[in-house]
Simulated scan of single mutants.
Amino acid sequence: MDDPRVYLAAERTFLAWVRTSLSLMGFGFLIARFNLLLHEQIRPPSHQTGRIATISPWVGFAMIVFGVAVCVVALLRHRDYIRRLEQGIANPASSIATPVVVAAILALVGLAMAVTILTL
């Protein structure tokens, strides 16, 4: 493929996934530190503070690891796409599985955080 626009579009897509992974990692850090905000601002009853303090770091850690995994998957997808372009495949097929998995996991984490906030 000689058209540079195709390569540039693939590069923009890759960079969008990298930005997404960085956002997930930042969101994970925020979740991990969420219990500090609760201790300083809201001061919930002690039995609930302990529950949030135990869950928050682990959910945050999981989101950071998920962000790293998204970055690695984006790199592998980009590399495969570029290889197929170099092999002469005009418009290589892309799987929709990765965006669906990312959206589903984010929806579950968001729902879990909403329930946690409501149960304080």
Rank of each mutant, 00 (worst) to 15 (best):
M1R: 12
D2R: 09
D2E: 14
D3R: 14
D3N: 15
R5P: 11
R5D: 14
Y7S: 07
Y7Q: 08
Y7E: 14
L8R: 13
A9D: 14
A10S: 15
L15M: 14
A16T: 14
T20C: 10
L24E: 15
G26L: 15
G26A: 15
G28Q: 06
G28S: 12
F34E: 05
N35A: 10
L36P: 00
L38P: 01
H39C: 01
H39I: 03
E40K: 06
E40L: 00
Q41M: 01
I42D: 03
P45S: 13
S46W: 04
T49Q: 05
R51G: 02
I52V: 11
I52H: 01
I52E: 05
I52G: 05
A53I: 06
T54M: 07
I55T: 02
I55K: 04
I55N: 01
P57D: 07
P57V: 06
G60E: 05
G60S: 09
F61N: 05
I64P: 04
V65G: 04
V65K: 04
V68G: 04
A69T: 10
A69K: 12
V70E: 05
V70F: 03
C71P: 00
V72K: 03
V73Q: 10
A74M: 09
L75S: 14
L76D: 07
H78Y: 15
R79A: 14
R79F: 13
I82M: 11
I82Y: 06
I82S: 04
R83S: 03
R83Y: 11
R84W: 07
E86Q: 13
Q87M: 12
Q87A: 12
Q87G: 07
G88V: 06
G88M: 02
I89N: 07
I89S: 09
V100Q: 01
V100F: 01
V100Y: 04
V101C: 05
A104Q: 02
A107N: 03
A112V: 14
M113A: 13
A114T: 07
V115E: 05
T116F: 00
I117M: 14
L120A: 10
